[in-house]
Design a protein around this nucleic acid. Structure first.
Lengths: 138, 138
DNA sequence: CCGTATCCTCCTCGATACTG
DNA sequence: CAGTATCGAGGAGGATACGG
């Protein structure tokens, strides 16, 4: 169609400046790193290799599906290494690769920050909510 | 009902060991920090306060809804500060609070890591995919 | 200019069941 | 033990339109 719709114009504009951020591969990588399970799994592997079932226990609340799915992604991205031992009950171990190890301290820092500052955040929330309530009654 | 269903038993078990991770407030905070927009918005504010429209332009690809929603969350959590200037066209500025500033370097580090190691990751992916293809034909 | 409100669509994620 | 396959509910998130 010749008529330039608003949607088409927006799409065209997107192609341009998304090169800066949205389409950049590093942006997609950042998105995957910003997965709730990734940080937990990587930090769980800080102490060395772990079996699948160990991970499932450590990262409590993760479903089998998400654990497998996330691990596959991390393996594919070269962050974790997977070893299959073909014993009678199969044994599978996961451990950080050098690349994964280089990311570990950053992830651990975020996790630690969350643990250290959760109280500050909760305090801020109370103040914010109180402010909202006050505005409402005003 | 008196019959203990599998689902009920699982729910009860969850209550127990989720206290360690899943129910911990810091876990929820970690989840919000693991939002794709949070890291981008926080790092965008590294250089000082920015207007709403500036943020929208810098963090390309973010919808109005998500930008506002994320900013509200960050404000509530005490990570960013919001200033409204009641001029004729309203002007709203956002800037990092001290708390947000303390988190900034960690977020910036993750973003930088993604930018620096995206090539390693893509190489790992190629190798992984090649391996998968080889397995399939075997 | 800076939002809020509504609708509507994916698509993530959990539950369940089944293989090697 | 360590997955894979399938299905279905739910929420995240984009498009659009409107308000202050």
């Amino acid at each position: 169609m010749a008529t330039t719709t608003a949607a088409a114009r927006r799409a065209a504009a997107k192609q341009e400046y998304d090169a800066y951020v949205a389409q950049c591969p590093s942006r997609k990588l950042l998105d995957t790193l910003s997965d709730k399970w990734v940080s937990l799994i990587l930090t769980a592997l800080a102490g060395g290799s772990m079996r699948y079932s160990d991970l499932a226990r450590t990262v409590a609340g993760v479903s089998q599906k998400m654990l497998t799915q996330t691990l596959r992604g991390l393996e594919r991205d070269g962050l974790v290494f997977r070893t299959v031992t073909a014993s009678v009950p199969v044994r599978v171990d996961y451990e950080l690769t050098p690349l994964g190890t280089s990311l570990l301290p950053l992830m651990a820092a975020i996790k630690e920050w969350a643990e250290c500052h959760i109280e500050d955040v909760e305090l801020a929330r109370e103040r914010y909510d109180a402010g909202q309530a006050a505005e409402k009654s005003a």
